[in-house]
Design a protein around this nucleic acid. Structure first.
Lengths: 330, 330
DNA sequence: TTGAAAGCGCTAACAT
DNA sequence: ATGTTAGCGCTTTCAA
């Protein structure tokens, strides 16, 4: 059953039916009602395959995340969806599993005309590849973005967020402060590490390279990083982690070794997922406005979709340090 | 740039190009090479909007989950994706937020020819509505399914899983055992509760209705449920939870009130997400083969897509009780 | 083995 | 205000 059938039933042309479906003004109330009646009688719903082919639009956007299960990303997606649905766009969420090849495979959806745009939350490709894609297709970076790449992004001020966290640790009496989670190439990592270094320097605290642990963002990385730190002759009294998951791993390991978090040692996470709020003990963490980040990213993307040549935007949203029981004055 | 351009470049008809693209046998090696060369030169990729319209297939399936952030569902999705990609299908994951209306809105994707099938992981609709949909469109239920509804599903034996958990608690010395998470209408809930009741009866333990708490599956539900139980004149010595998130909430609340989990009281979760493995203390839980559940669900769905009249299948996969530190002998 | 042509369902330019 | 018609890019039937 298609638009032809409706036209026949209503005794009008397919063009008129199309006009009614698309809320085109230039239809008399009378014929409009006839069409509406026919649509209702036949229970007609337009085949968007036809419409999309004709319009050369898919009304679909892709959000690429490293993993679906991290609440950090699912909140971004919620923001994206809320804006997308308003504009009759569907959102596809797909996971790259932090795999460059998988990410690349999803770009085929552009070439195959299956999507109108992509929001990258943690792009794996090179900066040059990103620029190349952005020149030809609508894309936005959200949360993580590639440095020195003139492609729109929305994120937080990771440098300041790091300063806030480290300064807070110093303020409550810590001087041996470690950081886990640096150097994966993202701007966020670089800035967070810089904020860490800057704040220590600012407070005349000697940098100790043993306190800088490079890792990924998962639970196990926290456990591994924590073990390394505890093996030092002089372990740190505070650990700043690049994600809540790392912080959970760290706290788990500390607890296992009989060290009481929030008393013997302080731990800070990043993102403020439910994990942080409900962990034992609840974790001090940097809150990111992830829902809003998603909303803004989708708004920017829609602008790009409607005009690929519109200018790039670089938007910084507010973060905040949420203090809980995993950090306590020394 | 389209199939016409390729045909022109190669000096053949569009039909021939189409045959080459679709690996049709009846093309001479010579012309095939000409076409391949043209495709390569022009960097041609087929517009699937055209193909899909013609074929009346979208090569897309929808997986509906209550929430994206729960690792339980994201592992199911991974299973679905792995099978789907083999067959050149794309997977759209969308969240219903456990909202009946939202779920209903996604059914429009069927009517609008945007998807070829749906896998429901926690259907919100009535059994009648499900049967109606299943009669007209390819759908599979995965994990949660609606009772007395002859629509294919893949799940575990929730009755036995519950028996395993409760019997274990009894074996290590518990007799005051509570259950949180029952009665949302899903077969899983009903069966788990039945397993709980059956096992107590089997062991000549009196049923105490105060020990049966009805709730959702989130962190906060665990906290609320736990508070209720602790307010009883005789609180339970063990709590069996319907999800790992509930268990986390419960343990968090117990800890807050100074009760030591794994010593003063035992707690069991459900699903075996990372949450359970990395929580403080690590949580005893029922492991579900979620990746395989996703794979099987997609296999069943493909069968339905290729023949809507193929017979329904009801598949039960193996679970197992994973014992950690949140339960200890009394 | 190859090509011509119809047509999937829709929108939009043009004509009336 | 409404209708006619071309055509989006593709596959597939039919004919050669």
């Amino acid at each position: 059953m298609n638009i032809q059938d409706v036209a026949r039933e209503a005794g009008v042309s397919v063009a008129t039916v199309s006009r009614v479906i698309n809320h085109n003004e230039k239809v008399s109330t009378n014929t409009k009602n006839k069409v509406l009646k026919a649509i209702d009688k036949l229970q007609y719903t337009p085949n968007l395959l036809g419409r999309n082919l004709r319009k050369k639009r898919t009304y679909k956007v892709l959000v690429l995340v490293p993993t679906l299960s991290n609440e950090f990303y699912s909140e971004i997606v919620r923001g994206v969806e809320d804006v997308a649905n308003e504009e009759n766009y569907y959102v596809m969420v797909c996971s790259t599993h932090s795999n460059k090849e998988k990410e690349k495979a999803y770009l085929n959806m552009f070439y195959n005309h299956l999507i109108d745009g992509i929001i990258f939350t943690a792009p794996e490709m090179s900066g040059d590849a990103m620029i190349d894609i952005a020149n030809n297709y609508p894309v936005i970076q959200c949360s993580e973005y590639i440095k020195n790449t003139d492609v729109s992004w929305v994120s937080i001020d990771n440098h300041q967020a790091s300063i806030d966290a480290i300064q807070y640790l110093i303020d409550i009496g810590h001087r041996e402060i470690a950081i886990i989670g640096s150097e994966n190439g993202f701007v966020s990592s670089i800035k967070r590490k810089q904020g860490y270094l800057d704040t220590l320097k600012q407070n005349n605290i000697q940098i100790n390279n043993d306190y800088i642990i490079q890792s990924d963002y998962e639970f196990q990385d926290g456990i591994d990083g924590c073990k390394k730190l505890l093996n030092l002759s002089k372990p740190p009294t505070a650990i700043f982690c690049g994600s809540d998951a790392i912080a959970v791993g760290v706290i788990r390991q500390l607890t296992k070794q009989g060290i009481v978090v929030g008393k013997d040692i302080s731990v800070i996470g990043f993102d403020d997922t439910h994990l942080a709020a409900y962990y034992n003990p609840p974790i001090t963490t940097v809150s990111q406005p992830r829902y809003d980040m998603g909303k803004v990213a989708m708004e920017l993307l829609l602008r790009k979709i409607n005009n690929i040549n519109c200018k790039n935007e670089y938007i910084t949203l507010d973060h905040k340090l949420t203090i809980r029981e995993s950090t306590l004055a020394k």
